[in-house]
Design a protein around this nucleic acid. Structure first.
Lengths: 178, 178
DNA sequence: CGGTTTGTTTTGTCAAGACTGAACAAGATG
DNA sequence: CATCTTGTTCAGTCTTGACAAAACAAACCG
């Protein structure tokens, strides 16, 4: 919950785009929809993805009701999904004294990624536990043991390279929220 | 579809494990179930994950009907999911002349990973396309442009580090299929 | 040929989750 | 206080996908 300038969104209503940037609007539509599908693959509701897409494209914080209007979605869904993303640290709720309404903006830091890394670490741990349970075993189980070692190593490498990707990213010209 | 020794699985029926390795059996159960949940996160049916788990722990190819029996699942599900994993290159169907039945083993190469990398590349492309559509824009859109740049760069780094993880893994002591 | 065995395909059921719309709560405001 | 406004929560609907069971196909066997 940050307090800042609530300057109205660059474009208010969903319709009536200037004829010149019609294709721009179409591209935005595609992008937003694409983010919806992309985040859906990460087990988040599609609307949450669309929210991220829309907010990524919005230079200024966007008002709650405009989100519902622009995405053509019920206020209930906006409420649920903004809170979800807020808790994940992906977006931020912005308010201003004297204005009762809520605004949202993407949070310029990778929040979704930690989830992924954690998942890999969990799998690594699972494989390690299994290896433990194997113990010193009959000859033909050697293959199994080698496989588990492989799994463990693989997830370790993966998680590490993810982490370093995150680090490398932090130093770059900019940060993004996904 | 490979032709090889179909040596019967180490342990045939699901019940009657030697009392000594009861906890070993429990650990296997946990591991198999864990793989079920893990692959489910990657948008694969849970049974597919359990199959991978079971086959990882099986030094020898496992017979089709034993899979159904061991996982307590219908033959139909086994059929569907083995084919799915087979097409993904995660497992391999093994047959032997003179034996009408099918056996399965995990394929010692990372097949699931390519999917992930492709997803990242796709998102990168999406962001790039959006950036394209933005074109040279009014002042306040600079932020948006920077964000998209960030996204693109981020997914690029991610996919690359995945690839290098795969590469590093390939040279290691062993390979695994997940 | 009839009858097995083995795997595939199809049909139907069930559960999970997303989303809507309506009811609701809590402030503002006349 | 009655009434907006704004956001949340809840109940119900709808869609999706997994799974089982049964029908099916094909190869084999007698």
């Amino acid at each position: 919950m940050t307090v800042s300038e609530p300057i109205p969104v660059s474009d208010q209503s969903a319709e009536a785009a200037a004829p010149s940037d019609t294709s721009r609007r179409a591209a935005e539509e595609r992008f937003i929809e694409g983010m919806g599908l992309a985040l859906e693959e990460d087990r988040l509701p599609r609307i949450a993805g669309r929210l991220v897409g829309l907010l990524l494209l919005s230079p200024q914080p966007v008002r709650f009701d405009l989100l519902a209007e622009r995405l053509r979605v019920s206020r209930g869904s906006i409420s649920t999904n903004t809170r979800l993303l807020e808790n994940m640290g992906v977006i931020e709720r912005v308010t201003r004294p004297g204005d009762r309404r809520d605004y949202f903006q993407i949070n310029e830091q990778p929040g979704l990624l930690q989830r992924v890394v954690e998942r890999f670490r969990a799998r690594q741990a699972m494989a390690a536990e299994m290896k433990q349970a194997l113990g010193p075993e009959p000859a033909d189980a050697a293959i199994v043991q080698a496989r588990l070692d492989g799994l463990i190593r693989f997830y370790a490498i993966l998680a590490d390279s993810f982490d370093s990707a995150l680090a490398a990213f932090g130093q770059g010209p900019d940060r993004a929220a996904s």
